[in-house]
Each structure stands twice: as C-alpha cells, then as structure tokens.
Amino acid sequence: MNDLAERVEEWMVGQMPIIQNHGGTSVVREADAETGVVVVELGGTCSGCGISNITAQNIKRDLIMDFDEVDDVQVKVPSTGDTGSSTVEGGRGGDLQFSNESADHF
C-alpha cells in the first residue's frame, strides 16, 4: 500500500466510530497521489441507507480538505447490501454486529 493509501486508511479509521455506530463499513480501494484520485467504498448498513449520500459527500469534502494531493474523491455505496469480506478490509468491519436498533436508525 502506498503512503497516501496508508494515510487515507488511517483517516478513515478515525471516521469509523461514526460509520460503525450505524453498522457501516469502509475500505479505501484506491489512493493515487500522482493523479489525486481516491476511491472509498462504503458497505454494511451504508448500502441502502437514506443518509449514505450525506456521509459520502462529507468524506469527499473532508478528504480534499485534509490531503493536499487529493483532488478527486469517489465514494461508492453498493446497493446490494453485500457485506462480504471484500468490503471490510483494514480490520474495520468484519461480521456485522446487530443491535436492537434498526438499520434505519440515526
């Protein structure tokens, strides 16, 4: 993993308490300092969540503000609700821990 990808992963870990509190997961799919492109994928209960678009916009804005070399951020939110291992890398996520709250709770 390159330096930018590692730094973006660390940044996302800092965001995870908010995302995980709602049963979501995230993974950095791409972070290229030369092109300035970062691709983040949200999973878990982010899929189909009514506020995932707000979360995505906040991630985009904050990554561009916090990292000088980042010019373009793409946040992907699968609509399938798939929570397979490919969407929970980096030790964040894994099997979803269900609570008494519904996935629509925020």
Rank of each mutant, 00 (worst) to 15 (best):
G81H: 03
I54G: 03
T83S: 14
V88M: 09
D71R: 13
V37N: 11
G93L: 02
A103E: 13
Q97A: 11
V75R: 02
F67D: 07
F98D: 00
P78K: 02
T45C: 04
V40A: 02
M16S: 12
N58L: 15
F98N: 00
V38H: 05
S52H: 05
E89T: 13
E101C: 06
S86P: 01
I18K: 07
E6P: 00
V39I: 15
T45H: 03
E34W: 00
S99I: 08
R61V: 01
E101D: 11
G48A: 09
M65L: 14
V40F: 02
G81S: 05
Q57G: 10
S102F: 08
A103Y: 08
G93N: 01
E41F: 00
V40W: 00
A56S: 15
G14F: 12
K60P: 01
F67Y: 10
K76W: 02
A103D: 12
S102W: 03
G14T: 09
L42E: 02
V37I: 14
S52N: 09
N58D: 10
E34I: 03
I51R: 10
N21R: 14
Q15H: 07
G43M: 05
I59P: 04
T25W: 09
V70S: 08
V39M: 06
L96W: 04
T87A: 04
I51F: 13
G50C: 07
F98T: 03
E30T: 15
D82V: 00
A56M: 07
L96A: 04
M1F: 08
Q97Y: 08
V37Q: 11
S79E: 14
Q15R: 12
V8E: 01
S102V: 05
T45Q: 06
R29Y: 03
M16C: 05
T87D: 04
D104E: 15
V73C: 02
Q74Y: 06
